[in-house]
């Protein structure tokens, strides 16, 4: 059995996949990767389906070795850098981690969340249909916990030889406003309060985790109180508690809650919003359902077409690379980027 061995990692490093579905009626949070698009890219780079469980890094990186065989790995998200035995792996490019080598994952730089995928995924038993770790209910992950040094993650397959591949996909546009649909409780706010919400800049505070992002900005005033009888919560709901400061509910959110929700981040913008770092500014713009659905379709199509976007990487032919790369049958694509072009 090939294993990925954790040498070191940050305290909130955990396994995340597409999340749990079907158990919210029993109080179980859906969880899942905070940036599903980056998860999908990391998975596609190693030949997996987009939603297979990967290691999610939160700000801090980590280091890993493997035992019992080699592993094909890829890291995507938040401008995070990967190196193997000190040699940088270009961004959004797969690599083979050989037995005895150390993979080093750097801090995230342009966002908060990054994903390390392993070809074939992990041979770990899902809980309630998912490997996603949920802190508050101790569900999923490795034995109901976040990852820590000396954890050994059993892997399903060993790496096959083959040239690395690269995904020439642009990072998200981080500057445009985060799109929301108003509701479900926009009638708990005056037209002025809704204007304040849509016209103002908010800052993501340090109170931002997998459960929710607390924002700070001009207070949004309620028109008829802020206590409602608990009703359901959707990922992306923006609730306004008594202090008028919005909280955006994220993947590890509770299943029901008792504050009015002024608006909901559209599904296509959740990944992008998740990568807005504490201290950064964010604006919201209201869109209609047809625009939100068109954006959801576009994202779905983009993820479905990721495997077609993969390009093989042409190595410079040093002895080291010849020794480490299988070039048999290597029809080299002249248009493919060189490793050096892709350096982080």
């Amino acid at each position: 059995m090939t294993e990925l061995v954790v040498k070191a990692c940050g305290p909130m490093t955990s396994l995340q996949d597409r999340g749990r579905s079907g158990y919210q009626r029993f109080g179980v949070s859906p969880s899942g990767a905070m940036d599903m698009r980056s998860l999908a890219m990391a998975n596609v780079l190693v030949g997996n389906a987009p939603g297979v469980a990967a290691i999610e890094f939160v700000n801090l990186g980590g280091s890993f070795t493997c035992a019992g065989g080699d592993l094909r790995i890829a890291l995507v998200g938040a401008g995070c850098a990967l190196s193997i035995d000190g040699t940088p792996v270009p961004p959004r490019t797969s690599a083979i981690l050989k037995e005895g080598q150390t993979a080093q994952v750097g801090h995230t730089r342009t966002g908060t969340f990054a994903y390390l995928a392993v070809a074939g995924g992990f041979a770990i038993k899902p809980q309630l249909g998912s490997l996603s770790f949920h802190l508050r209910s101790r569900l999923g992950g490795l034995n109901g916990a976040a990852l820590q040094a000396d954890d050994r993650l059993p892997c399903i397959i060993q790496a096959q030889d083959g040239a690395p591949v690269h995904l020439p996909v642009n990072e998200d546009d981080r500057d445009s406003p985060v799109r929301v649909m108003l509701g479900p409780q926009d009638d708990y706010f005056t037209p002025d309060a809704i204007r304040t919400f849509l016209d103002s800049e908010f800052t993501v505070t340090p109170q931002a985790d997998r459960m929710g992002f607390q924002l700070s900005g001009p207070a949004i005033e309620h028109a008829k109180g802020f206590n409602i009888v608990s009703d359901g919560i959707a990922t992306g709901h923006i609730q306004i508690p008594g202090n008028g400061q919005p909280i955006v509910l994220m993947r590890d959110r509770q299943t029901a809650g008792g504050y009015p929700k002024i608006a909901t981040v559209i599904s296509a913008d959740l990944d992008r919003f998740a990568q807005v770092r504490p201290g950064s500014a964010v604006r919201f713009s209201a869109v209609r359902r047809d625009e939100a659905v068109a954006a959801a379709r576009a994202l779905k199509e983009q993820i479905a077409s990721l495997p077609d976007a993969l390009v093989p990487v042409r190595f410079s032919l040093t002895t080291e690379h010849l020794l480490s790369t299988n070039l048999i049958g290597g029809a080299v694509n002249a248009l493919a980027p060189k490793m050096s072009d892709l350096a982080p």
Binding site: G183, P184, I228, V229, K261, T264, A292, A295
Partner: peptide, 17 residues
């Protein structure tokens, strides 16, 4: 019927227990 983004809605029967 209240919109909850593009992927959800809430059918609300009243703000009471």
């Amino acid at each position: 019927i209240l919109p909850c983004g593009d992927g959800a809605l809430s059918v609300d029967f009243g703000n009471v227990i």
